[in-house]
C-alpha cells in the first residue's frame, strides 16, 4: 500500500535517511493491515487453524442441537433445543422447499437443513466477539458446498431424466426456435454448468468477506480515532461516529449471515427442483 511517490522517495533517500527502529506499535494514524493478516490464520496445531475449528464446531453444534432435540420427549409442546430444531425443520420445509420445489421436494429436507445449519453456524462467528471470523469468508467451505451442490443437482437430473434427456433439456431447452439454438445452447451450457456453482460459491464467500472487511475497517477507524495521540479533543468525539456505524454493521451482519445461508439453500432447492422437473 505504499504510494508511488512514497516508494520513489524511499528508494531515492534510502542511503541518506536515518533509519530508526521503533519500540512497539505506534497508534498514530490509520493504516489498513495486509489483507492476509485479516483472513489467514496461523495453525494452532498442524493442519488446524481458526477457520477449520469453526467449521468443525459448526458440525458439532449442529449435531449436538439435533441430538438433544431428537432425544427430548416428543409428545409435549417443544421447547428449548427441540423447539429450535423444529423451527429450523419447518422453516426449511415451508419457506424453502414448498416455495420452490413443492411437495415432491420434501425428501430433500435433511440435505437442505444440514446445509442451512452448517452455513449459518459458519457465518455467524463473524459477529461473535473474540471469534470474529466467518468461516465462509475463506473460499474453502463455499467452494466445497457449491461443488457438492453442482454434483448433487446434476446427478439428480441424470437420475430423473436419464443422461440424454437431462443434457437435452439443459442444452436444448424446448420451446426455443431451432435457429436460436446456436445462441441458446452455449449460454445455457455456461450458465447451468459453470456459472451456477461459481456464482453460488462467490456469492456466499464475497458477501461474508465484504462484511468482515467492513467490520475491520470501521473497527480500525474507531480505534485510530479514539486512541489518537494528537488533537484528542477533536478526534475522540469524531471516533464515536465510526463506532456507531460499526454497531449498525454488526447488527446488519446478523441479517446477512442468515440471509446468505437462506439464499444458498433456496438456490440449491431451485436447482434441484429444475433438475427434477424440467418445466421450461
Amino acid at each position: 500500500m505504499i504510494s508511488t511517490q512514497l516508494a520513489q522517495m524511499a528508494s531515492a533517500r534510502v542511503n541518506s535517511i536515518l533509519v530508526q527502529a521503533t519500540e512497539g506499535e505506534s497508534t498514530r494514524g490509520f493504516h489498513f493491515p495486509p489483507i492476509n493478516t485479516l483472513l489467514r490464520w496461523k495453525d494452532i496445531t498442524p493442519g488446524i487453524n481458526k477457520v477449520v475449528l469453526i467449521s468443525i464446531a459448526a458440525a458439532l453444534i449442529g449435531t449436538a442441537l439435533f441430538l438433544i432435540a431428537a432425544n427430548r420427549d416428543h409428545k409435549t409442546a417443544p421447547k428449548g433445543a427441540r423447539n429450535l430444531a423444529e423451527i429450523a425443520v419447518e422453516f426449511i420445509e415451508k419457506n424453502i422447499i414448498m416455495e420452490t420445489m413443492g411437495r415432491s421436494g420434501l425428501g430433500w429436507t435433511p440435505f437442505l437443513l444440514t446445509m442451512f445449519i452448517f452455513i449459518y453456524i459458519c457465518n455467524v462467528p463473524g459477529i461473535i466477539p473474540f471469534i470474529q471470523m466467518p468461516a465462509t469468508a475463506r473460499m474453502g467451505i463455499p467452494a466445497f458446498m457449491a461443488l457438492l451442490v453442482w454434483v448433487v443437482y446434476n446427478a439428480t437430473g441424470i437420475k430423473n431424466q436419464g443422461p440424454i434427456g437431462y443434457f437435452k433439456n439443459v442444452l436444448f431447452p424446448p420451446g426455443v426456435p431451432k435457429a436460436l439454438y446456436i445462441l441458446v445452447t452455449p449460454i445455457e451450457f455456461i450458465s447451468t454448468l459453470v456459472v451456477r456453482p461459481f456464482s453460488l460459491a462467490v456469492r456466499l464467500f464475497a458477501n461474508m468477506l465484504a462484511g468482515h472487511l467492513l467490520l475491520v475497517i470501521f473497527a480500525l477507524l474507531s480505534e485510530a480515532l479514539i486512541q489518537a495521540e494528537t488533537q484528542r479533543i477533536f478526534l475522540i468525539p469524531i471516533g464515536v461516529l465510526p463506532f456507531g456505524v460499526l454497531m449498525f454493521l454488526t447488527a446488519f451482519e446478523i441479517l446477512v449471515a442468515f440471509l446468505q445461508a437462506y439464499i444458498f439453500t433456496t438456490l440449491t432447492a431451485v436447482y434441484l427442483g429444475m433438475a427434477t422437473h424440467p418445466e421450461h
Binding site: 464475497a206 433456496t266 438456490l267
Partner: peptide
C-alpha cells in the same frame, strides 16, 4: 407477500452476484 418475498430474494441474489464478482475482481 410470502411468494413475492422469496422470489425477490432470489432476484436480489442473482443481481447481487454481479456486484460480488466485481468485488472479487477487485481483490
Amino acid at each position: 407477500a410470502g411468494m413475492v418475498r422469496t422470489t425477490m430474494f432470489l432476484g436480489v441474489a442473482f443481481t447481487e452476484a454481479l456486484a460480488l464478482i466485481g468485488f472479487v475482481a477487485f481483490i
